[in-house]
Design a protein around this nucleic acid. Sequence first.
DNA 1: CGCCTTCTTGAGGGTTCTCAAAGTGGGTGG
DNA 2: CCACCCACTTTGAGAACCCTCAAGAAGGCG
Lengths: 258, 258
Amino acid sequence: MSHVALQRFLDRLLLRSSLSASERQAILELPCTRLRVDSHRDAVVPGRPVDHALLVSAGWAARYDQLANGCREIVAVYVPGDMCDLHSVVAPVPGWGVQALGTTEFFQVPHSALQRLVDNSPAIATAFWRDTTTDASILAKWVCNRGRRQSLGRLAHLICELSLRLEQAEVGTRTHFKLLVTQPQLAEMLGVTAVHTNRVLQMLRQSRLISTLGPMITIHDWDRLARLGEFDPAYLLLEKPQRRRDQPFGATTVTASE
Amino acid sequence: MSHVALQRFLDRLLLRSSLSASERQAILELPCTRLRVDSHRDAVVPGRPVDHALLVSAGWAARYDQLANGCREIVAVYVPGDMCDLHSVVAPVPGWGVQALGTTEFFQVPHSALQRLVDNSPAIATAFWRDTTTDASILAKWVCNRGRRQSLGRLAHLICELSLRLEQAEVGTRTHFKLLVTQPQLAEMLGVTAVHTNRVLQMLRQSRLISTLGPMITIHDWDRLARLGEFDPAYLLLEKPQRRRDQPFGATTVTASE
DNA sequence: CGCCTTCTTGAGGGTTCTCAAAGTGGGTGG
DNA sequence: CCACCCACTTTGAGAACCCTCAAGAAGGCG
């Protein structure tokens, strides 16, 4: 149950950071409570302080902001293995809400347990920090996307990003996966209207770049889609940085921090 | 010299985190090298790994991304006291560049020194993490801004944000400060063209909301500007979170998802 | 003085929005 | 089982916002 979810979170951490056997064990032994949230419901209500982080286990979630006129704007999307609220450990008053995109399964992890790991292990502190930095890197790319790229390229870029993240999370391949969002939700992720999203999707279909069957999406020419969206995966930080103290992936020992 | 810059950085950390006397001392004793960068020059070149973080001391800097067609897009702006590259400690291969907006003075702080602080003090690790989380919070707001807000509101929001950040950094008041960017640079921060930026600026001037004299900008009706930009300062995390039993700052109660 | 960047103004065109409505599918209750 | 409702998907037409191209005015710097 929670083993699977925590293992996926640990895998995500190990992709970018090195942890010792005991540190890995500490991650896997984090207490967590299962939480099921129906589509369109909030897992985090905007403005209400939280005392736990949210690990996505199945389904997708989104961080959103709400404007005065009521229309919502998705600023980040989270897939299985993402600790979508890890930053709340250091900033527990969220200005944003977290919404389930479809029916989504979370695991709640108490801040106190996470804080204890941070206080006891500099390596875990660094790993957590690096994990939220990865999210920030994606945010920065989204800022750029909405700036000076038009909707067709923006959609292509988003699909490419999701394909790699889902492949990494092992819930699909980069050319074939479930797109667990409705077109209105996709619109909020792109910063355009639902009507326009529909037209742009049709353009991608008519270009034979993608095809959809229910929630499944198939990418027929990933490279061409990536060129259309000017997609460069570097910002996803899927390559582990080579650093002096870092061990190769899967290493069982780690030099003590000095 | 470097005292002043490090003190400003420490003040920024203390605004959101608590540090002991020895931890504060350790921050102030960080080794750093002065670096002057002329307008439009890069302090960080995209793709080139760095071994130091950059503390802005005087002037403004911007993090930018470059599209294939050559046009640049500013995803974050940094003012004095901001450690604009702190995340590079955990992600040293930047996908982005950092550019001086006007002539800007930085102090370079070696990653090794910062990492040593992180390894030896969980409180400092948490403070650094929280600092980059603040930057991420601003990024998220920028994503929202570019999504479903048009250029007039976007500009109003940006001016409000900068006014509070500069007031915090003590390089101006919230109604009167130096806007150290050209209109083309402002355009890159808004995700519109320079021509359109000029027209929108004139709209703000003709509405008697702002006036400019050289680089100085005066905000005549801050509250009205904030309403125009639907500006809510919560995302700047200027309120230090309480240890436990947090009160939502400026949060209006929101009915749970319908 | 000449050059460069920035600031400003104008006109036309393109992307995206708004409003509207019809078709589709899943869920619920009679 | 069917009717009903609701949200999602799709299509159309006109309008609004912003872009592109162009060119003149203003200011800093050698």
